[in-house]
Design a protein around this nucleic acid. Structure first.
Lengths: 338, 338
DNA sequence: GGAACGAATGTAAACGTTTTCATTACTTGA
DNA sequence: TCAAGTAATGAAAACGTTTACATTCGTTCC
């Protein structure tokens, strides 16, 4: 910002023939200044194209009306949708959202959090719960209120606004088992430092154990979040000696990749092999066969997270955490084994 | 931000027994301070969990190392992908990206631009070219360098890093015509204050005129960017007296919706009706039939836009605008009429 | 042995706001 | 008529940095 060109409060005050205090009041507490002065000042502001200098403002008032979010990646429909809702709710009350991304790297996440904190954010939205304790220690020390989303752990005391990935994955696995599948495999996201991915794996394992199928022996391929690596992962599974009759995928993109690969192998879905997803993105209802998946209320989650954070900032409450319900959406990609 | 808890430069200086200037130098010009002092200061910073106060910094240095972007919506794969690349390039050189969204509303866009400017952004990324002249006037007055993306107008002098929507749409229309289609219709985005959408319409019309089919008479339904309204738009077209043999869609999402609706009507794609898209999102190669569409190099565009903006900020160049090439990707959804 | 220099550090004045405390000029009620 | 209250405004001190300038040491060179 080249301040040479940016008019300041001072400029406005001089031009309008009032004090800087008055101009500031027009901006922040219009009721305190007389009708005529207010109009004069506003006109002057408009003439000069004045915009308050954020730095000065933050410095003097010690509030930024800004909250931050660090997400793994922007290049992913599910975060985009939830975040959009989050932002809409914030901007309704005049709060700006700053978004940064971590590329799924905890160190980078910490770095981004520090960057946001030095920009004076009043609160923070984070995805999931798995991160180094240094990160949490930093947030505590700086007294930055934060909300964790996209996951919910019943037992822990932090402020979650999300859903129980483990339970949802269990439910899906149970559904698959109920259809009669015995040889089940899984394509999961990269579980290292991604609690959503690892909770989903755990959930599936637990359901298998419950049903008397060994969860420990569940064949798993981990794979980054993309269509093509979903295909590759599926190819690996299909080439194994005892081909699974059902593949549970850690998210919809992997599942769609897997369906594509199954077809390439000459298999029909779901007659020859069943495949399920997780997230219920738009894609899930568009491909053929329609994808049986876990529906996650992303927009509702974003809205709720914003609400929770705002109420912490208001001082209304310490943490109004919230567990959102997921549900299984039955489409065509899951059927009984033949 | 509760400064009661935030250690300041001063605190660090006192604790380390040096002056604030020295601490500041450790942070900004490490070479200027001796090895031993530097280590001491860094250790102290770490102990205290100090983070520089952005406001103070921006105020004193009059630079923010921040650039802003205002996009129509985050809830849209194509912007997400380009923006992700944009951000990656920026963060490589230590520049932070601030993202705001306008919901396709010019007034709201202006508002967001003002908000970003008062946060001290050094530069700005905007989508498309159609916006009120007040917005441009404001940017000129404040001397904010900006780059326009997602479009390219050969004749204009502003700094574009994008592609020629009009030409690309023409190329697609020509391809359709070459296949032998005569009864062509279009499903477009909302053209009001969306130059990408209107340029695509223009492009199609021009190609029709060239081929001796009246561009003016092209049946068009405008539709917001979503699967379901793509379906609705397609339904409208299918119910008209002379059903088109080919539908050119303003983007892939509309096209996918249209394909779904065509199937619902009992039509086979492409045997009974051809449908084309624009953007080449992941979805396009996944649905059945594969979507013939215009490929747009979103990531390359994001990277290039970042480069252009950075070089303007360096003072290297006034504007290194750039036109990116699009190409038509032939898949199965376009064939000759039967 | 002293002048001149350079490296390392400190001092203090900006930067553009907000906000506390005065001050002024009216009103109101007795 | 005046005391007291109120509404509108102004003066000036923060806020946490950066940075021009000043200062203090050692070195080095003649």
């Amino acid at each position: 910002m080249k301040s040479k060109f940016a008019p300041t409060l001072h400029d406005v005050a001089r031009q309008a023939g009032v004090s800087t205090a008055t101009v500031s009041r027009v901006l922040n507490f219009p009721a305190l200044v007389s009708e005529s002065t207010r109009e004069l000042v506003l006109r002057t502001i408009d003439e000069l194209g004045y915009t308050p200098h954020f730095g000065g403002r933050a410095l003097a008032s010690n509030r930024s009306n800004t909250i931050g979010a660090v997400i793994p990646t922007m290049d992913n429909a599910i975060f985009a949708r939830g975040l959009q809702a989050f932002q809409e709710t914030l901007s309704d009350v005049g709060v700006t959202l700053l978004v940064a991304s971590s590329a799924y790297d905890p160190a980078r996440e910490f770095e981004q959090i520090r960057a946001l904190v030095s920009r004076g954010i009043d609160g923070l939205l984070l995805i999931g719960v798995a991160r180094p304790k240094e990160t949490y220690a930093f947030l505590e020390r700086r007294r930055i209120p934060y909300v964790l989303t996209w996951n919910y752990r019943p037992d822990e005391k932090v402020c979650f606004v999300g859903f129980d990935n483990r339970a949802a994955a269990s439910a899906m696995a149970r559904t698959v088992i109920e259809r009669g599948h015995q040889r089940i495999a899984m394509i999961a996201g990269i579980t290292a430092s991604n609690d959503r991915a690892s909770d989903r794996v755990e959930g599936v394992r637990a359901a298998l154990d419950e049903a008397g199928l060994s969860g420990r022996d569940l064949p798993i391929v981990e794979s980054v979040y993309s269509l093509s690596s979903g295909r590759r992962a599926c190819a690996t599974l299909l080439e194994s000696k005892s081909r699974p009759t059902a593949v549970i995928c850690g998210n919809d993109v992997l599942a769609v990749g897997a369906i594509g690969q199954a077809k390439t192998h000459g298999l029909r879905v779901p007659e020859d092999i069943s495949i399920t997803g997780f997230d219920d993105i738009e894609l899930a209802e568009v491909i053929e066969p329609g994808l049986t998946t876990v529906h996650v209320p992303h927009r509702r989650m974003g809205k709720a997270a914003a609400g929770a954070l705002l109420s912490i900032l208001d001082g209304t409450t310490d943490c109004r955490g919230m567990e959102l319900e997921t549900r299984i959406v039955m489409r065509e990609s899951l059927a009984a084994p033949s």
